[in-house]
Each structure stands twice: as structure tokens, then as C-alpha cells.
């Protein structure tokens, strides 16, 4: 019987574990190794340079400015998505728990649909809408005589990144709405009733009862947005190209990493070692931020 138990454990766990070890754990460990070498991806791994790739990413004159610009763009993207998902996600979730359940579920399905649309479709729909001159949005703006607002959104250094952040929020709003709803449904009805009995209005109830209750969820949303913002790649690549134009105004860690690892129009691949070091630094930023957020979340959950 004991022997059979071991057969079962190995047999059931084996397939998942082997797949995971070969295609996640092993690449992760080799990535750590590659980052310590000067290596362009072909030939043997001989030129060990210690942490030079990391110092090159963080401090060199030729690479570090690009890296920090990308980090800044990721942070900016994060701030934008935070503001948008909080304002709209929270408002819509709040309204959805206040109406009857059947229509509420329908709306939840509707809001989630853009999330399932492939990014390539999202990117082209909005590229078409924003096409200077004949796109729907420029035509609408000129019909309304709002010519001051009629600018090439995706071609402007100041507006390209916020525009893509808004499109990302449009496509991704369904998930934060569901998370906010799940958390608001957990609020004991008595607490709301008690607030009402005390004569609290809607806004007061929201501020003093609902908001404190869902604060841990808020940190979940922050974590998701942070991870999402630092993984931004698809829309920027499709709408602005590998060079993350105009003039690198939309260059994030994802696109910088892509150019470093796999080359791009106009630049040549700069090496596997450097790219893996860059990926690691990006990963550390996300890890540290997530760790802090998870810690804060635990504390907020305990305060309840």
C-alpha cells in the first residue's frame, strides 16, 4: 500500500512538475547565468563579466538613460491605469451592486468583453479611430469645431503614452470591476443598515463604511495595475513599432528589452547577457513593489 501511494504521488505530480521544471524553472536559472556573461547568443559561454551587465543597465552613459526613461514610462503608465481603473472601476462596481442581480450580471458580461478581444484587434481598432484626418475621432472633433483638441494623438510625444494607457484601460476595465464587486458583496448588510439608521447619506456610507471595508481590495488592484504596467508591450509594439515612437516617447521596459534581445528596425541585437540582466532588473522592481503591496494588504486586512 505504501509503495502504491508513492507511485500515485509521482505519477500524478510528475507531468506538471516536469513541464514546469523544464520550461519555467530551468530557463529562470539559465537567465540568472546568462546575465553574468558577455554573450551574444551563439557559441560557448566563456566571457564571464560578473555584474557588469547590471551596472551597464543601471549606470552607463550609453544605456542607463534609455533604461530609466523606460522605467519612468512604465511608472507613468501605472499611474494612469491606477487613476482610470479606480475612478471608473469603483464607480461602475458600486452602481452594479445597487441594481437588480439579473441586469447587473449582464452589465458585468458586457464590461468584460473588451478584455477577451485580442490585443492586435484592440490596437488596430483604435489606430483606425485615431488616424489623423480621416479617423472617426478626428472627424468628430472637427465636426464639433474642437480643432484645438484635434491633434495626432499617437504621433505626439506628449500624448502617445497617455492615449495608449487610456486604450489599455478601456480594454482591461472588466477585471477590476469584478474584483471590486466581489469585495463589496462581502460587506455585511447590517453595517450598511446601521449606517442608514444613523442617518448617513449615500456618500457618507460609501466613505465611512464601504471604502474602509474594501481597502485591501484596493491594494490588489494596485498590484495588478503595477504588474500590468510593467508588462506593457503588445499595444505599444503594434501601434508604435519596435522603436516605441514618436522619438521613444512610448518606450517601456518591454520594448527596450525586445530591442536589446531580438533587435529591431535600425538597431542590432545588443546581446543576450545584457537583455537578461535588463529583464532581471525589471523583475526586481516588480517583485519589490509587489512584496510591499502584499505586506500592506495583509496589514489592511488585519485592521478590519
Amino acid at each position: 500500500m505504501r509503495r502504491r501511494r508513492w507511485h500515485v504521488i509521482v505519477g500524478f505530480l510528475g507531468p506538471a512538475l516536469i513541464l514546469y521544471l523544464i520550461f519555467i524553472v530551468y530557463p529562470f536559472l539559465s537567465s540568472l547565468r546568462y546575465s553574468l556573461y558577455n554573450w551574444n547568443g551563439v557559441g560557448p559561454l566563456t566571457d564571464f563579466i560578473g555584474i557588469k551587465n547590471f551596472t551597464f543597465v543601471l549606470f552607463s552613459h550609453s544605456f542607463a538613460p534609455m533604461f530609466w526613461r523606460a522605467v519612468w514610462h512604465n511608472l507613468y503608465f501605472f499611474a494612469m491605469s491606477m487613476v482610470l481603473t479606480t475612478i471608473f472601476g469603483l464607480l461602475l462596481a458600486y452602481l452594479l451592486i445597487g441594481i437588480k442581480e439579473r441586469p447587473s450580471r449582464w452589465f458585468q458580461v458586457f464590461y468584460f468583453i473588451p478584455m477577451v478581444v485580442p490585443p492586435v484587434v484592440v490596437a488596430y481598432i483604435w489606430s483606425m479611430y485615431l488616424e489623423p484626418g480621416y479617423g472617426a475621432i478626428p472627424q468628430l472633433l472637427s465636426a464639433l469645431h474642437l480643432d484645438a483638441l484635434n491633434v495626432p494623438f499617437l504621433g505626439s510625444e506628449a500624448l502617445a503614452l497617455p492615449t495608449i494607457a487610456v486604450i489599455t484601460a478601456w480594454a482591461g476595465m472588466g477585471f477590476p470591476i469584478l474584483i471590486f464587486i466581489a469585495s463589496m458583496l462581502n460587506i455585511p448588510e447590517e453595517m450598511i443598515e446601521a449606517a442608514k439608521v444613523d442617518g448617513a447619506g449615500r456618500w457618507r456610507t460609501f466613505r465611512s463604511v464601504i471604502f474602509p471595508f474594501i481597502r485591501p481590495t484596493f491594494l490588489t488592484i494596485t498590484t495588478l495595475n503595477f504588474v500590468g504596467a510593467f508588462n506593457a508591450f503588445d499595444l505599444i509594439y503594434i501601434m508604435e513599432g519596435t522603436q516605441a515612437g514618436p522619438n521613444y516617447a512610448t518606450d517601456v521596459i518591454g520594448t527596450l528589452f525586445y530591442r536589446t534581445a531580438f533587435g529591431g528596425f535600425g538597431t542590432t541585437a545588443q546581446g543576450v547577457g545584457l537583455a537578461t540582466a535588463l529583464a532581471f532588473v525589471g523583475f526586481f522592481i516588480v517583485m519589490i513593489a509587489s512584496a510591499i503591496l502584499v505586506f500592506l494588504q495583509r496589514r489592511a486586512a488585519m485592521d478590519l
Binding site: Y20, F28, S30, S31, Y34, G282, V286
Partner: peptide
């Protein structure tokens, strides 16, 4: 240990290991 190894993957953005995966 095995469970935690799986959980650790939740924190790993898969793009991060794109280069070693490509080489593999």
C-alpha cells in the same frame, strides 16, 4: 516545497525568461 515552487511562478512575468526560452 513543490507547492511553493509552483506558487513562485505567479510572481514571474513569463516575458522575463523569453531569452533563455528562445535559446532552449
Amino acid at each position: 516545497v513543490i507547492y511553493l515552487t509552483f506558487l513562485a511562478g505567479l510572481a514571474l512575468p513569463i516575458q522575463m525568461i523569453a531569452v533563455p526560452l528562445f535559446i532552449l
